[in-house]
Amino acid sequence: MTEDMSQYPLRLDGDDFPMVRFQKVTKAYGSLVVLNQLDLDVSAGEMVTIIGPSGSGKTTVLRMLMTLETINSGVIYVEGEPLTHMERDGRLVPANSAHIRRIRSKIGMCFQHFNLFPHMTALGNCMEGPVQVLRLPRKEAEERSLELLEMVGMAEKRDQHPSRLSGGQQQRVAIARALAMRPKIMLFDEVTSALDPEVISEVTNVIRRLVDTHNLTMLMVTHQMGFAKEISDRVCFFFDGSIEEQGSPAKLFETPERERTKQFLNAVLEAN
């Protein structure tokens, strides 16, 4: 399948291009289409939450943006530049690893299962990127990391390995680790799903503080409808590989238009 790439701009021009743009992005595993011609723009500083039933492709959106998954067609732009592609001789061609690394440095991600490095302390986890990737002097990396661990309330546990930390604590360290790279975009992939109910607020409080104090662009996949409603600028309801409905949290949660959205929200409410 060869795609006509001339339909995609080499870069997004103008003053108000979005921080992230998915343009006709399709992802399939064999014959199973996970995302179908997705168009999605996220503005700078916007908090967009993605909800939907499992298998609707919502996590895939984040994973493609983090370049953990390749895409089959379409283009993803970050800050106006293509992420999945690069310009060569006036055309878009698939990006090489140097290009991907350069654009990827603008993005940070937190995972459902935290994925902390088990052989490093909390502080070591946070310092790894700044020292090994950004090449900061150790002292500076340590100061930056400690500041962030302080912000997520984990400074006291700086010398503990992940195996000694609870799930909520691990996730907070993971948030600090991602922030230590000073990303412009943060991705939260079901960051509370693996947590015990009583520690979920530890993590959601940190994200709340981030929204209040940092001008980050954020994309979040979550099953916490209350949290999504409270914190999002916009909510996207995914169904079957595309956006079924999107809008402000008030509109989407209180006056959903589409039948599938209503069904999903009812089902979730009943389950709670």
Binding site: M66, T67, L68, R101, R104, S105, I107, G108, M109, F111, H113, N115, L116, F117, E128, G129, Q132, V133, A174, R177, A178, M181
Partner: peptide, 16 residues
Amino acid sequence: KGQWEAAKAINLPIVR
């Protein structure tokens, strides 16, 4: 797999 992905998310090159 999560370890590889976490390394990628902080942009660690493959050798590192």
